[in-house]
Amino acid sequence: MSVTSGASKRTTRWDDAARARERVLLDTMAAEPKDSPAYSRARDELVTIHLPLVEHLARRFRDRGEPHDDLVQVGTIGLIKAVDRFDPDRGVEFSTYATPTIVGEIKRHFRDRGWSIRVPRRLQEMRQHISQATAELSQKSGRSPTVAELAEALDLSEEEILEGLESAQAYSTLSIDSSGGGDDDSDPSSLTETLGSEDDALEGVEYRESLKPLLAALSERERQIIMMRFFQNMTQAQIAKEVGVSQMHVSRLLTKALLELRSGLTEDAF
């Protein structure tokens, strides 16, 4: 981002101040132990001051059928990763480093949502409306809305809502474009943590040894959601709240992950 015109001098000065603050925070993170309050305060502030960057990047993806709030949420996850991984010694600006991570996370969200598959615009918009209305109605009533409630709120027929819901899933299109490969968002510590509790959770499953590598091949978020739903018996609504994504997104990730597991698992279930 080069700034040349005179009108943006003030911006440049502000940037200088922000950059200086950023430097202080990065130095604090480098100097303090990771479990110290000073470290987490610096980390939080770094995240907070770069939220406008996430907003800005998320806006680049508007009109693609995903709610802006969802994009900001996943973009923020990218920002947090960037904060945690940034190495000041490499000599690049933090924003330069963070941008591809944030954009990557947003793109991954689209990939997760299966937008690589062409969906008619009408259905894309309907999904988006359903997702928004679901969030709003859940907020109001404290539970997931019914199809009738959604139909009334959106002035659509129940049939149209059902069609929208089915299209929001990826039942028939999965595993074709799913990379299946590991994901870059599993930092080693959280992976070990997850795998440890997975061992306990999978205790009763006969084919857990063949299940484990399949679970490991899922993205961190999918694995987390699978464990929460199937082994900790959390509801989709609870998971949505815990993970910070919409319930429809949880539903879709669950379906997608389950299909991947199913196609990979050669258990003899009978």
Binding site: T134, R143, S144, P145, T146, V147, A148, L150, E158, I161, L162, L165, T235, Q236, A237, Q247, M248, S251, L254
Partner: peptide, 12 residues
């Protein structure tokens, strides 16, 4: 499920 007024997460 829609006929039976299931909430969306249960329906899914």
């Amino acid at each position: 499920c829609a006929r039976l007024d299931y909430p969306l997460d249960r329906l899914e």
